[in-house]
Design a protein around this nucleic acid. Sequence first.
DNA 1: GAATTTCTCTGACTAAGATCAGAGAAATGG
DNA 2: CCATTTCTCTGATCTTAGTCAGAGAAATTC
Lengths: 297, 297
Amino acid sequence: MDTQWVQQVQQIRSFNRTLTERVGALDDRFLGRARPIGEARLLWEIGVEGSEIRALRGRLGLDSGYVSRMLRSLEHQGLVVTDVSPGDRRARRVHLTEAGQAERAELGRRSNDLAVSFLEPLSDSQRAKLVAAMGEVERLLSASMVSFAVEDPTTPDARWCIEQYFAELNARFEAGFDPSLSISADAHELTPPAGALLIARLRRQPVGCGALKFHTGAPAELKRMWVAPAARGLGLGRRLLHELEQQARAAGVDVIRLETNRALREAIELYRRNGYREVEAFNNEPYAHHWFEKRLS
Amino acid sequence: MDTQWVQQVQQIRSFNRTLTERVGALDDRFLGRARPIGEARLLWEIGVEGSEIRALRGRLGLDSGYVSRMLRSLEHQGLVVTDVSPGDRRARRVHLTEAGQAERAELGRRSNDLAVSFLEPLSDSQRAKLVAAMGEVERLLSASMVSFAVEDPTTPDARWCIEQYFAELNARFEAGFDPSLSISADAHELTPPAGALLIARLRRQPVGCGALKFHTGAPAELKRMWVAPAARGLGLGRRLLHELEQQARAAGVDVIRLETNRALREAIELYRRNGYREVEAFNNEPYAHHWFEKRLS
DNA sequence: GAATTTCTCTGACTAAGATCAGAGAAATGG
DNA sequence: CCATTTCTCTGATCTTAGTCAGAGAAATTC
């Protein structure tokens, strides 16, 4: 194993140790306010606006009985009230009472205090460095939390991604972008086995997509490559591309082709860096200036 | 409240959220191997060489009964054996069996896997950035974990600090350093109410010291300012100085004086930056080149 | 040599966090 | 309209983590 790798792993382990020690304080001394952390988390998650209980359960990933019991306890303490959901009378909603709002605000304050306790002992320049380094770590760790999944193009998340993609093309192309003038990649064309749409997610939120149209005996087409602006610079494009190539290989594809517009400079750079070489125009996509091709090994 | 401060606090809260989410995996999926984390931590802490039980308890900060019970459980699982300490027959030692060693190695491997899962999805340059930023965060957070306490100068930790201090002076002064030729600051002179010795600790390990000798009706003397090489650059000197000044104020001191050697350039810089101004020699310390004074407000 | 302290262990107890199997009510699909 | 599913709640039960009060043995202090 090469030494640099070993050192990197060591640094991360050491970092984890320091951090669980330091941030461990969060749950115990700060968030838990003479109250079980479970209840504190729940109280926080209910939010100022209130929540549906099922949504709450989903967000925290807890058992229905468990949540119910905790809500009963919070209700006893006068912090929340529950009522029936207006739309669905099986479901229930939970709201914070005035006391609950105050308690939640207090939790927020404690979370602030914890952050302040990080900053307090440092000098101004150290503070700036700490915050910058934390931002960097957070960003890069976020990258390692992104997951990829093939998804039906008609789900709301999938449609949202495609819309974002169109909106971006429309903003960046000199002449705007009208999908109906462009070569199609409709839902049925991106649904297995005809094709595949891959969605990248960070904390369950979609942050990117990419798609393939398969053509038996002919190259597959790469379409709809998009990364949310907030998630750029994390190497997500590269990973989306690799995942799509995996999919293509699994489907028996030999060659992937794509066309793109000269306004999309990062994308062009991404394709070049990842083994796509520019070829003659192989279709008459009106918005395209560059055509690329890659043979999968 | 100023906006920069608010932003810094926000960044740290966001960082904490991301991290508890990401590193939370540590305890659960990785370290806990179908075994309570308490036991896993204990197994890890016992180490390859074995440990005295009391040392173990001290390091993990756990109740004696609790540790005893967990050891019994690990013993039942055939992972550890205990025997009487050779030196002190009240105390007991615990060793890993072969199975225990294997289990501990597995924990190490899992901890590595977690670190690897951070690095894996990243490109080389992103890896380097992540590791550097983590190092920085760890360093600066360490600074905020340092605690200060007035301590008896005869405790082992206190003596260790003073010895380190002497060793460093001896290495850095052109002509070496012999404490017996220097103005005294013996244990009784640094024990309240005659004086005070402050020890800085990081994870219970001493990482610095500083002392005061009080003289009723006359300036107090600042002595024994030292920061461990590994803990330099964290602003510990500044904090030690501030803590000592607090102590002095509490003891009714108006003026603090000190002398120092020209070889100790960071120290001189520290004093200057913190309101000490150079004055005429007020004593005949043979190793001193500079004399400083500060009036406490 | 007696009194005190140190060290480990046991028993009794508690709180937190959680799971599982239904029950009852409402909504949905056919 | 009937069967099925969804949603919440209750009761029973479990594990983990941890505290507290001694007891017994050895070591240390006076």
